[in-house]
Write a protein that binds this DNA or RNA. Structure first.
Length: 136
DNA sequence: ATTCTTACA
DNA sequence: TGTAAGGA
């Protein structure tokens, strides 16, 4: 099938599918026309790629692990025990990131909590804002 | 009509 | 990642 059909059947944009190929996650054949030609298995492969990306794995690692993954009753799983350490390493990296953000949040909370009580008479900011505050 | 590559108000 | 441009 061509990229359009795969995009439809997976719900993934053609842009993303081409990106996955660029990252070595998909290797579709090419037609004489230059059009990419995906086999049926590509549908499942894309699903697995989405799963792994959602799990926070970097594309470089996904490219290496993907061919070794299998589908057990519990879903996508490592094909052999040797892969587990790689997954655990990523999990630890994510845990560390969560901890970092938690610390950042605490700091921000402290700043917010330090807000002065309601002022009887209006504003005290005499300076003009250095930049426009984005309205998002 | 589809897809391809390249590039970025 | 979206999207526009310019070709096949």
């Amino acid at each position: 099938m061509r990229i359009g059909e795969l995009a439809r059947r997976t719900g993934i944009s053609e842009r993303a599918l081409r990106y996955y190929e660029e990252q070595g996650l998909l290797r579709p054949a090419r037609r004489p026309s230059g059009y990419r030609d995906y086999d049926e298995g590509a549908v499942d492969t894309v699903r697995d790629i989405r799963t792994l990306l959602a799990a926070g794995l970097p594309t470089a690692l996904i490219a290496e692990l993907l061919p070794c993954m299998v589908n057990g009753t519990a879903g996508l799983a490592p094909g052999c025990p040797e892969l587990v350490p790689y997954l655990e390493k990523e999990r630890d990296r994510i845990s560390a990131a969560i901890d970092d953000l938690a610390r950042t949040r605490s700091l921000l909370n402290a700043i917010i909590a330090a807000t002065p009580p309601e002022n009887p008479n209006p504003p005290v900011c005499d300076r003009e804002p250095a930049v426009e505050l984005a309205t998002r």
